[in-house]
Design a protein around this nucleic acid. Structure first.
Lengths: 227, 227
DNA sequence: GTAAGTACTGACATTCTTGTCAATATGTGA
DNA sequence: TCACATATTGACAAGAATGTCAGTACTTAC
């Protein structure tokens, strides 16, 4: 950090001769590629250092471009942040719905929960989203609405189908909603304080796994009672 | 925001006459009082606007002092943040242990959980702590370790006592730990994404209450099964 | 009443950060 | 091969944020 190396002496010498300078041939990417690289770098910075680490110059250096290039592609810093929100939301949505939809036959809650936790902690997605939520962004149009709705719908459909197979009454929709909320809350919470808590409790990586399993079992017991 | 009103014209006139200026008599507080007021304002800003809202000038304006006064009391911005961490940690600890210790006879988990949630959501404590955790502060000496340990000890003691009364076998300690972790995770998660999720699901304030009750019931069911 | 200590202030210095602009280089299509 | 579109850059502008400093006013101890 802060080894900026501004080299102020160079200012007085406007490259008068450029005797042997290698000139570092300029790289030109497609707009799409450039945007992707910039978002990747921004995501990485945000996950590691938080919003205060989200500086155009730093990101530019990570990518190997100059910071005005970022402005060129995203208009403003705010535009970059919004694009990052959008991309992260989309990724999360795909990841979650994909996990729910793929193994249509599998009714085991533990698997689903595992998927949710992984989708949120992998790549620090939860931390990233937490940042955006904490900074008050993502409040406006936010796709979060749709995502949550879709998830609950998919889950409810599964439970109803399962109930029909067993001949038990269909579960309350609010119950399904609460299950989803608790899982989401717990996953976000774990992404933020999980490491601290686990450390405080003397839990190792395996202990964290046991915790997730335990959580899945608690939910499973509940499901069996409620249908 | 940003209605700064710098009034640059005043610069050229060094209060030559000071004809009718009320001069706004200077207020002098005890160091302790000043520190408290500053921390209150900082906490408020942080909870409402996130880390980017934590600017010395803003906080100073909230308190009604000049920003160098803050530096006088806390040395640096970083010093202010550390002081804020310490105070928040202490408050949370008192709040949680107080809730657990007060009604020693009451074994109802719902109450405890309600207390935990309230302790964490009050004044955005959880958001504040989340920010501190996400920025990697609080990692070093952090009292979090102690807090978690104390809570689990207190809870476990209660469960064992209860088990003795009922003549059931004492619960596993790891089970108690997991209950505490899940509650903490869920509370933190709710503090961050809860509002978004509730909104997305069309839950009003009352719905959030129902959710907490539901969660308490899930845990209660678990407790009854495990002792 | 006086002296000492200190909470507090305004003005300034420094550094950082976003954003603008004119110029340049590179890929693409005719 | 030439023209055009645009990705990219260095230099600069403007403003914001923390931090420094000398001085001011209030409290307290003697």
């Amino acid at each position: 950090m802060s080894s900026v190396a501004k080299n102020p002496a160079a200012k007085a010498v406007p490259a008068a001769k450029s005797a042997e300078k290698p000139v570092a041939k300029r790289v030109r990417r497609t707009a799409e590629e450039a945007r992707r690289l910039i978002l990747d770098a921004a995501e990485e910075r945000l996950a590691r250092q938080g919003p205060e680490g989200l500086r155009l110059q730093d990101i530019a250096r990570d990518v190997g471009i100059s910071h005005p290039a970022i402005l060129h592609h995203f208009e403003s810093r705010e535009g970059l942040v919004r694009a990052l929100i959008a991309r992260t939301n989309a990724q999360l949505r795909d990841s979650l719905l994909g996990a729910l939809g793929s193994d249509a036959a599998n009714q085991d809650a533990a698997d689903h929960i595992g998927h949710v936790f992984e989708a949120l902690s992998d790549r620090g997605t939860a931390r990233l989203l937490s940042w955006l939520l904490l900074t008050g962004r993502a409040t406006e149009e936010s796709d979060a609405h749709n995502i949550m709705g879709e998830i609950v719908e998919a889950l409810q459909a599964k439970r109803e189908e399962y109930a029909k197979d067993r001949g038990t009454p269909a579960p309350e929709k609010e119950d399904t909603l609460f299950i989803a909320m608790l899982t989401a809350n717990a996953a976000f919470g774990e992404a933020i304080v999980g490491r601290q808590l686990a450390e405080a409790a003397g839990l190792d990586q395996d202990g964290i796994k046991r915790f997730r399993k335990w959580f899945a079992k608690v939910l499973n017991d509940h499901l069996e009672r409620e249908g």
